[in-house]
Write a protein that binds this DNA or RNA. Structure first.
Lengths: 350, 350
DNA sequence: TGTTAGCACTCATTGACGTTGAGTGCTAAC
DNA sequence: GTTAGCACTCAACGTCAATGAGTGCTAACA
């Protein structure tokens, strides 16, 4: 049996109606509220076919039909209207005070959650491809240093280093020069143990001290591609009758709280930058607790290879059009901000 | 009417029973399961008195009694057993890797939430009284500097400064010396606009540049006493039948998500360091959504005047003994870690 | 005077039962 | 291929009686 045009029309009518009311939709409703000019009996026949195709299901005999995951998939891929992004959803003022990138990300997803009434999530960007801009050791006391590491996008990391032997300002300065000479401009993946080893051998001075310093830098670099996840609007989940079963709601909220599970959920697909929005519906999600949800993700870009993810999580019976438009809006504006930011940085580097 | 010893005993029995079962407790239960040797009828009389005193309430006529907020208060103040802190609740390994204080705090409340099955919250310490240990400007490019600010407890903050005129390394070094000479050792409240003004006048060199730098430092300092709040185990709230009314649960979870409301809830009492645990029960809480909850808070200390708050949030029908013991444990161990940390720091400074 | 047994009363909870109504699948006629 | 008609299903709802845990009150007792 094939999915002819009339069946598609009926499927669309079912999904539209279900998205609106949340009630299983019956044949009579469709025949009445669409202008297809066919009777409910005919629609019943077609619905039986659609069910056989796996696109709709009956919660129980003698109830109306509800879209299946597969049905939603067809809706999302082929039937959904792409609304235009006319009105800027985000107020500028939220986005201009970029003193700290994490705060900015949190503000954005909070706004996104408020606008959509779904839960939202964002990951900090991954730094692996980013170039190191500057390293500086600062002497705090005789046996304590701070390593300040600046990477592309002007993100600053620091790490306390406890050293075993005393060191004077002059030596610190020498090491600073050495490090900057050898390491700046490299991407973080290039600064691997091998390179550091050769650096250790290459210069014979203060081997022990250099050891601790380099180890600490290594550690900092490794720890800096730990992704942070922030969520917002988690309580929105409880607003939807789809999750009136508390246990389901708890599973979902728990997943939102446990960042490692959440990360698994977000990053199952490739983390390549893409202009498209990815939608995973129900059992398309890898995490079991989320198989009653739909997850929309987009990527944002903060310089070369510096990619993060932003997403919306809601019930499968979600207003996909609204969610998509809001997410695109967010992605678009984030890229705009970060690109402006980057342009300044690049200009500065000349 | 006064609260004689027998009434207290009955109150205790009611509360113990209610904490255990969650069901309103009747006179017959009390007479059976205590060794007071009085009949249910007598207990009924006493219960009527306790009700008149406002210590217990009936959810409806012909049901058993439930403790009122006032009843819990007496329980907490006078009747509750102080269990000893025998077993160390926190694994050492969680607490040793202190590379970043925020991560440490998050680990602690996560553990605390797991141990107690309640929601937990922690505030980052307030820095107002802390002494500045070190300031260093690092030149990133011709028009961009990073200000690295180290305060007591080896907490490092940084701030990007965009400057209008170019500057060479030598000048940066001079400003560094100037800043350290004049500002280190002062507490953050001492570094006010007045002092900075006088500093600006005192030294005539590069006034414009110094302006931007000092402004940025000022801003950093001001922003560094913004309190961050972290929560954990929020979903635990949904486990308790006390919040089976979804709307109540939503209110509570929402409060946990909205950090500014949460802060109001935590910090209504003085933020002075204290060895005691504060307990606020039901309507003793300032935030309306939380008047079905009990909130336990403790303070931890990270150096002179560097005080933060850690707390447990659960239903009024909470296992107070367990919560108190866990919170004390957490407070104790945090203070231990931070004190060790501090001792090293202080030793280093000599 | 405090304690207790007894009794009538209250009220949330539970389960059985019938009604309703929205919906279906199937069949036969168009 | 479409449709009208019909028997059937089943969740949802309201009613009703039974149950039982609990109370307050009264009168008798020590």
């Amino acid at each position: 049996m094939e999915l002819d045009e009339r069946k598609v029309k009926i499927l669309q009518a079912i999904i539209n109606n279900y998205l609106e009311t949340g009630e299983p939709v019956g044949s009579r409703t469709i025949s009445k509220y669409t202008d297809m000019g066919i009777s409910s009996a005919t629609i019943r026949n077609e619905m039986a076919d659609l069910e056989e195709l796996g696109l709709i299901v009956q919660p129980h005999t003698s109830s109306g039909r509800v879209p299946s995951d597969k049905g939603y998939r067809i809706y999302v891929d082929r039937l959904m209207k792409e609304s235009k992004m006319d009105d800027p959803v985000f107020k500028e003022d939220l986005l201009t005070k970029v003193d700290k990138i994490d705060t900015l990300l949190q503000n954005i997803i909070k706004k996104l959650a408020n606008n959509t009434n779904y839960a939202t999530v964002v990951s900090t960007p991954q730094y692996q491809q980013t170039k190191l801009k500057h390293i500086k050791l600062i002497k705090l006391s005789e046996v304590k240093l701070v390593a300040v590491i600046v990477i592309e996008g002007d993100i600053v990391k620091n790490h306390i280093i406890n050293i075993t032997e005393e060191i004077d300002e002059e030596r610190v300065e020498k090491i600073n020069n050495l490090l900057n000479l050898n390491l700046t401009g490299l991407s973080l993946v290039d600064i691997n143990l091998a390179l550091i080893q050769s650096l250790k051998e290459q210069v014979g001075i203060y081997p022990d001290l250099l050891n601790s310093v380099l180890d600490a830098i290594c550690e900092t670099i490794q720890s800096s591609d730990e992704i942070q996840l922030y969520t917002s609007g988690a309580t929105n989940i409880l607003k939807y009758p789809d999750f009136s079963d508390i246990d389901k709601a708890v599973d979902i909220l728990y997943t939102l709280e446990e960042k490692n599970i959440l990360q698994e959920l977000l990053l199952t697909t490739d983390t390549q930058y893409s202009k498209d929005i990815k939608i995973r519906i129900g059992n398309e999600n890898s995490v079991e607790a989320m198989q009653e949800c739909s997850v929309l993700t987009a990527t944002y870009k903060l310089g070369d290879g510096l990619v993060g993810t932003i997403g919306i999580i809601g019930p499968k019976r979600m207003n996909y059009e609204k969610a998509v438009v809001n997410l695109k809006q967010a992605m678009f504006q984030m890229n705009e901000i970060f690109n402006n930011q980057l342009q300044i940085t690049i200009k500065d580097n000349k």
